[in-house]
Amino acid sequence: MSKPVSWFLVLFGVWSWFIWPNFLRNIWSDPRSFDGGPQPFFLVHLVLVVVSLAFGTAIAVIGIRGLRGSGRRTR
């Protein structure tokens, strides 16, 4: 994997960790999220955030491995 692609994947993972927690904070403060307990509106968005963070982390790990592996190539 090339270095530019690896960096793109790492930056995508960092971006995911920047965006999705902020999104969850906004959903948490939405009045539709809780009414005597978590509502389906909140639960659906919570699953979206968790899955997105998991994918973002996995993509960043692939990018980091790509960066680490790119230095080991012989010409």
Rank of each mutant, 00 (worst) to 15 (best):
K3P: 09
K3Y: 08
R25V: 09
G36L: 09
S2W: 01
G37E: 08
F42P: 03
I19Q: 12
P40M: 11
F34L: 04
S29A: 12
I27W: 00
F8S: 14
H45Q: 15
F18P: 07
D35G: 06
F41Y: 15
N22M: 07
W28M: 08
P4E: 10
S16W: 04
Q39M: 15
F18N: 10
F8G: 14
F42L: 10
F8I: 10
V44T: 08
P40V: 08
V10F: 02
F34D: 01
Q39S: 14
L46I: 01
S16D: 04
V47K: 14
F23R: 09
W17Y: 15
W20F: 12
P4S: 11
P21F: 01
P40F: 10
S29E: 11
L24S: 09
H45W: 14
L48I: 09
W20S: 05
D30L: 02
F41S: 03
V44N: 10
W15S: 08
M1S: 13
F42H: 12
P21D: 01
S2C: 02
W7V: 07
V5M: 12
L48K: 13
P40D: 09
W7I: 01
W28E: 13
V5D: 05
W17G: 03
P4V: 04
L46V: 07
S16F: 01
S2M: 04
N26E: 14
F41L: 06
V44I: 11
R32P: 00
L11D: 03
L43M: 14
F23T: 11
L9D: 04
G13R: 05
S6F: 08
I27P: 06
F18V: 15
G36P: 05
G13S: 06
L11N: 14
R32I: 04
P21G: 01
R32T: 04
D30H: 07
N26S: 14
F34I: 01
S2A: 06
S29W: 04
L48F: 15
M1V: 10
K3H: 04
L24N: 03
H45N: 15
P4T: 08
G13P: 13
W7K: 05
I19P: 00
F12L: 15
I27L: 08
W15Y: 15
P38C: 06
N22K: 07
I27M: 08
F23G: 05
W17F: 15
S16K: 05
V14M: 14
D35L: 11
L43I: 15
V47N: 10
G13T: 04
V14D: 03
L43C: 01
I19M: 11
P21K: 00
V44H: 06
L43R: 10
P4D: 08
F12P: 12
V47S: 10
W28G: 00
W15A: 12
W17V: 07
F12V: 12
G36V: 08
V44F: 09
G37S: 09
P31K: 02
V10T: 06
K3V: 15
G37P: 02
L46E: 11
R25G: 11
F8K: 07
L11Q: 05
F41D: 00
L11R: 08
P38G: 11
L48T: 12
I27T: 14
F8N: 03
P31M: 06
V14P: 11
L9Y: 03
V49K: 11
F8Y: 12
S29V: 02
F8H: 05
S2Q: 10
W15Q: 00
F8T: 13
D35C: 03
S33L: 02
V14N: 06
G36R: 12
G13N: 07
P4W: 09
P40K: 06
P4F: 00
